[in-house]
Write a protein that binds this DNA or RNA. Structure first.
Lengths: 334, 334
DNA sequence: TATATGAAAGAAAGCGCTTTACATTTTCTT
DNA sequence: AAGAAAATGTAAAGCGCTTTCTTTCATATA
């Protein structure tokens, strides 16, 4: 059997209370402390976090919900969040929600039963009801990569509006007039589109909602949509994909149609994942300061958990346009 | 405050024992059962998994250690394992070990304090000491993607030897004689190399250990190594990268040197991640039946946890060579 | 009708830890 | 050296649940 605090107490010849105190670094006489420490070593004793959590102590565990680990951007976010959490002495329980509000509710409920100390909700968290509930019950939460303007909740994200604006401006400056967008069903995409529209407006270009298509989150669907875009009688000369994964689908659709990038078609992505380095030509995309965002989100959450801060904050970081070779001067201009 | 079993009991007018019984689907009179169920709804009662775990019940939580989420193959494995685990009613606590034996030991110890029911160790788990300990204490463990021939432990993997053999044979059949390998520090790579060597031997080709280089797991290092390979006075005409990530690095190094793939250099990867579709030309690689492996691993673990099976099993699945455009006839033959 | 039988419900102990309130020892004053 | 103050240690209750052991009670049996 695993040793318990009783075993240690017996071995050390003190009471369990004393053992508890040395575990928690409380005032204990030097001699007793030594005896206890020695006993703990000898028995290879490790306190049960369960038992201590039952008495009200936090579990040092964070629930982390994300839409889908298969997206490299999300995977990297997970990686960074995990790193920071471990640095700060917390564990992460990860759940993929697949953009599904019921799963979101389910996992949150489950994790609460397991007494996680707080939640980080990454990507597009859809179930506002559940989120509101968490806030009402003062469960520590931070939103990563997204805001809910109507709710007071700690959030960290990158300015998607600006990102979209910059991509579109870049494309426009290359002479493109017909710029399509392929998005996913998420707030971040909506913001990027807002930025894109603003850029068009600022440059006096026509807006055409037909040019904006939304994919469910599968690769096949995205490729199909991209293909449809390219097969139009009046196809776009540039496509802004709201993430790199979507951009790959555009590449694939273009390749199938023997379109050369960037000569026949300019493509821009978003997220600066390793995918954007692997394509040929390398993908113009938007970099987000992933590590900073993630560290910040974890730190926010831990502050809230440890009760150090009562005020809610929102941090918006700046994206950075990475111009590579997948975008070029519009062929119609040449 | 969150409602406890006492609140429910009071509300329903029964004892807590009765409530506990309905929670656990034990023999309870119909009338009491209804009253309890009703009370639970009304109070929105959710049992504390902590408290129940303290009495010896399992926590329905699996510890999942993997080397690095940033590798898309690993991310997909994580995704599948998570899916299957959730299907079976288990949660996953994920920890990235960075190929670091101390981290491995640390996380295992931590997770044991949190009373996870068992472990899935994916990728290359290095700390044999710790693994042995787990086995001795009869903690359920399954190895995913790797074997320890000397230890009796449930394992699921793909036959890396065959994978390596097939890649090399494919390359050889294209006329390549100087085939370099770029590997990572892991057993799976070692097996793939074994397969590669066997293929060379079977075809009567010379073996040259100089042609095999091992990268730490960073992209930069891999790119540097690939470059060194290509800059040799007698460079290889083909490179077998032990995973797709490494293959990308080879692509990058080749692109930098204006080498055309596959005309000047054939490149093969391993894992069939989405990276292999995004490159140009698309990457020849080896597909692993990720979903089946992961489901199987989870199922093994759960069987062991639930005590349904006492015997240890090893499953080896077959890899599949995916020939795409990054490998071609050796230029020296043309 | 009296008794045996089994199902249903409850009392209470225990899981491993924290914490409060109290008892004991040590240390310091004067 | 006596008494007060500070430091140290302990007993015991409680966290929310499971489980064993009884007790209670309705039903079947003779």
């Amino acid at each position: 059997m695993k040793p318990t605090i009783y075993d240690v107490a017996r071995e050390a010849g003190v009471s369990i209370a004393t053992v508890s105190k040395v575990i928690n670094n409380q005032q204990v006489g030097k001699k007793s402390k030594e005896k206890v420490l020695k006993a703990m070593k000898e028995l290879n004793y490790k306190p049960s976090i369960l038992a201590s959590a039952l008495t009200g102590k936090p579990t040092s565990t964070i629930g982390f919900l994300l839409p889908d680990l298969a997206n490299p951007f999300v995977a990297e976010v997970a990686r960074r969040v995990e790193d920071r959490a471990h640095e700060r002495g917390y564990n992460l329980v990860i759940c993929s929600t697949d953009f599904n509000p019921e799963k979101e509710a389910l996992y949150i409920s489950l994790l609460r039963q397991k007494s996680v100390d707080g939640f980080i909700l990454a990507g597009s968290f859809k179930n506002v009801e559940v989120l509101r509930e968490l806030l009402e019950e003062h469960i520590p939460v931070v939103l990563l990569t997204e805001f809910y303007p109507s709710l007071s909740v700690n959030s960290v994200k990158v300015d998607d509006f600006i990102g979209g604006y910059e991509v579109a401006s870049h494309l426009i400056s290359l002479g493109h007039q017909k710029i399509a967008v392929i998005a996913e069903e998420a707030n971040s995409s909506r913001e990027r589109i807002r930025g894109y529209k603003q850029a068009l407006r600022d440059h006096g270009l026509d807006m055409d909602d037909e040019m904006i298509v939304t994919s469910d989150s599968s690769t096949e669907d995205a490729e199909r949509l991209a293909g449809e875009l390219l097969d139009r009688s009046d196809p776009p000369t540039a496509i802004f994909a709201c993430n790199d994964l979507l951009a790959i689908s555009v590449f694939l659709a273009a390749r199938e149609r023997k379109l050369s990038i960037p000569d026949d078609l300019s493509v821009a992505g978003y997220d600066n994942t390793l995918l954007s380095r692997s394509t040929d030509p390398p993908l113009t995309t938007v970099a987000q300061p992933i590590q900073e965002m993630c560290s910040q989100a974890v730190d926010f959450l831990i502050e809230e958990i440890e009760g150090k801060s009562k005020i809610k904050q929102r941090i918006v970081m700046s994206p950075q346009l990475m111009i590579r070779k997948s975008t070029g001067v519009c062929r119609l201009e040449k």
